[in-house]
Design a protein around this nucleic acid. Sequence first.
DNA 1: AAATAAATTTAGATAAATCTAAATTTATTT
DNA 2: AAATAAATTTAGATTTATCTAAATTTATTT
Lengths: 221, 221
Amino acid sequence: MASQTVENYIKAIFQLTEREGGSVSTSAISQQLATSAASVTDMLKKLAEQKLIAYVKYRGVHLTPGGKSMAVEMIRKHRLWETFLHDKLAIGWDAVHEIAEQLEHVQSATLIDQLDAFLGYPKFDPHGDPIPDANGKFTLRNQVLLNTLQEGDQAQVVGVREHDADFLKYLDSRALHINASLLIKEKQSYDGSVRVETAGGAETLLSSKAAQNIYVKKNLN
Amino acid sequence: MASQTVENYIKAIFQLTEREGGSVSTSAISQQLATSAASVTDMLKKLAEQKLIAYVKYRGVHLTPGGKSMAVEMIRKHRLWETFLHDKLAIGWDAVHEIAEQLEHVQSATLIDQLDAFLGYPKFDPHGDPIPDANGKFTLRNQVLLNTLQEGDQAQVVGVREHDADFLKYLDSRALHINASLLIKEKQSYDGSVRVETAGGAETLLSSKAAQNIYVKKNLN
DNA sequence: AAATAAATTTAGATAAATCTAAATTTATTT
DNA sequence: AAATAAATTTAGATTTATCTAAATTTATTT
């Protein structure tokens, strides 16, 4: 019966590890969870006692196998709930995260297994992030960032690297949703911005920063 | 942002009020929530400060309009989630309560409105209890307890008054689920037990106690 | 390599929800 | 109406997760 707090710490450590690799610092966690560094230190000691993390004073932490499997389970629950909210309840991809943040703490193995079945064992969530299966396995996929495409390339949007709600709403307004087809019309070499044509012929100018946060699957030419 | 604890107290007070009417005692609440009477007293003071209940020392409490509307909202969420778990995820009526107990604390008006729509605005949950609509209105229904039926009466099961998981599993085993048709074959006047025929001709002997906990809708003869 | 800056930990408090045991109030019996 | 029993509240602690400020350790500069 892990408390929500423990679950949130474990998930944060997992995500920071994925991003930065190696071991995760107290300050990185304190920033991620918006708590003081002192609180984080206190909690790290407790998590270490529970054998969920390996903690060396002043040197940061990493997850043990037990901690990692708890983290993957949390990711699984979070992404399955996001998929439910989006696919079944028609809630936008910019709003599902906050609600799933609460739903992921509900404890019931049956619930999650049945939800997975009900959704048809989805492999990716509304943001295109992979959903681990019941064994913790993630599905891999050929994907590149949009900013690596060249003029004339055709591709489909498969995911986003940035989950900020405003960014997602912005993409919606340009019809750059998951599965959207696109064609690179022009790419500025000096600032990396790209002019993109979407379905129906509409064109959008994407900044380099935006292009660095969209995952696409490139079509064969 | 009401805490789960506050929500649980308010829901308990609402349900005890429905059952016993008038004002609810400290000990009734302490029993319902499995906490000490001292803890309940502490919490009642806080709920009174928040104007969710009217509290008179040594004399029990009742909900204010604000408290009541919070309670109805909790009931609505709980029963909609139970309906989802049962109808969409195929989880038995003996297991849905415990999971809904957690889900009901998720905060999001959009979520509940969309869930309601997704489920087709159900009026009753898997136990036959009415689901308040978005305005807090409960649907009424003609129903009587099975023990009030006479020999030869035909009826449909519409609900249960007792939610104990073992009782519900027992009813399942006798095909006495919601909507089951039944015919009273025999009624013992000395102990109130009834012999009941269900669909397919199977017969079951129900104790008086069981018969007092099943709501039915009587057919016209 | 010393000095300074940054990150981390420790110490000491606080708030929320809980507990047990003792004191008080209300209800029931004799 | 006293005495006794039951219910309720108060007093004083405990646990969990958090905080700020001070102390310590590690990293970076000069």
